[in-house]
Design a protein around this nucleic acid. Structure first.
Lengths: 152, 152
DNA sequence: CGCATTCACTTAACATGTTAAGTATCTCCC
DNA sequence: GGGAGATACTTAACATGTTAAGTGAATGCG
């Protein structure tokens, strides 16, 4: 079998870890995890969102998001209210306090991103992201649905 | 701030998830998680290893590895014994049962990898991995050490 | 020698990933 | 209009990620 240290999942994991290692200390100093930061960033760009839509945007599974929103709400970084038209839906938005926290984190976060871009190269970074997007595209629809049909 | 859905960590996360989504069902059918599979693969290529070295190879943190080894040992998929020369070190190796399990998983795993390669393209895949490796390299040594010095 | 330090893990504690099951609400169709 | 099925979450249960602290064994050095 192929040396697994050179497998695609491993390459992706290692690369992502190398990148996240840069950001975590800064986020941690502000009392945020990577996922909490993702959620705040997703909320900052929008008025309010449904939980399901937020899960899609922040690329989190429902259960994870559910827990994190509970905590962020307890810390008053976000606000929720149930939609008027559909009692099942919960509308989420970032709070004033959340906005301020983001403002205090953003500079360092931007600086780190800039340094990564500088080291790797702007053009190369764009190319890498393009290739990652294509990988994702090429695998879209290969997974769950067909298998599910086959198993039934 | 840059649309975070196009940030590098997000691109890497999405790409990796797209890939792993292909493997998880098969592994799950054999009662293995992604990490357990990584450990077995790392062990298959070697006689015995120390835990620390295995952590490096399988790219797992010590505490995660510690737990997983405990479980894999209970399932008799691996074997451990303490090193003669240094009682602190635990030498790990795959068991006969572990080898058999691997043999039963490998074909499907190889088939999935082949399909991914086919869809994305052999040359392109190699290029992507090359670029991921370079990203990792370009960030090596940017993180913990300097910060630690600065904080002291 | 003896003891402080380092080393190789392991435990602990908390946060998230992952799948399955539960709950409340809504929709649609008879 | 009422009940079956779909929808939007939430809870639960188990596994891992992440950091800090703990434990026992080796090492170095005065």
């Amino acid at each position: 079998m192929r040396d697994f240290s050179r497998s695609l999942p491993m390459s992706l994991l290692r690369a992502r870890e190398a990148v996240m290692r840069q950001f975590r200390p800064s986020l941690r100093q502000h009392g945020l995890t990577e996922q909490q930061w993702r959620i705040l960033r997703a909320l900052a760009a929008i008025e309010t969102v449904e939980v399901t839509e937020l899960a899609r945007t922040a690329f989190l599974l429902g259960p994870s998001l559910s827990r994190i929103l509970r905590d962020l709400e307890a810390r008053q970084l976000i606000e929720r209210r149930t939609a008027k038209t559909d009692q099942r839906r919960s509308m989420v938005s970032i709070s004033e306090k959340g906005v301020k926290l983001m403002a205090s984190v953003a500079p360092s976060s931007e600086a780190i991103y800039a340094e990564i871009t500088r080291r790797y190269g702007v053009r190369k970074l764009a190319e890498l992201q393009e290739m990652l997007g294509e990988l994702e595209q090429s695998l879209a629809g290969l997974g769950a649905s067909e298998e599910a049909i086959a198993e039934e």
